[in-house]
Amino acid sequence: MIRFEHVSKSYKTSTRPALEDVSVSVDKGEFVFLIGPSGSGKSTFLRLLLREEVPSRGRVIVADWNVAKLPRRRVPRLRQRVGCVFQDFRLLTNKTVAENVAFALEVIGKPRHTIRKVVPEVLQLVGLDGKADRMPSELSGGEQQRVAIARAFVNRPLVLMCDEPTGNLDPDTSQDIMLLLERINRTGTTVVMATHDHSIVDSMRRRVVELSLGRVIRDDARGVYGVGR
């Protein structure tokens, strides 16, 4: 589903490459934690997946698309297949829960009857049925993150890319969010999650790819956050 082949990425503003000769392959339906300290290259890894950046060297393949070679007009197609969830939720504060989720479908031109059908379904999946008409400010952090996940998942992406989705949440709420991500993973969606939360990584025992100074220093099939912890 995702293949990084000897990928390096340098920014003009930095002397050290953000990623250096990274080769990682993620199969369809896998759940992968991307860990490492700040500045290790996790965000660059995720930005390359979305074609927010293009690699300086090497190839990034997502769902058979060579991301760097993708013509500009095809980039939206790629992004429709890769859902994103962020630490800061990025909800539209002037729209209700249902409108926030519907927004992701409206802007890619989905017909209204489809939106009316799938939005309640996905809200039920993330455990927000009954809160469709609430405003984001009326929700807890965990609930807001559920809305963000619903919005990322409503178009049934092949890959769900999560950038520290539990970074703003307390441990219990974080566990709930992880259960939800697991449930989404079980539907066959590949999940790539960048995190600093070692308790989550340790308890889930999923694949762990560790980055340090832009290089992959560890790739364990059922890993923990820190070796020997």
Partner: peptide, 17 residues
């Protein structure tokens, strides 16, 4: 910018944005 950022991420075309 929040709306357009989301639009870009969820795959809205440049024209739509």
């Amino acid at each position: 910018r929040t709306e357009t950022g989301i639009m870009r991420l969820v795959g809205a075309t440049r024209w739509y944005t």
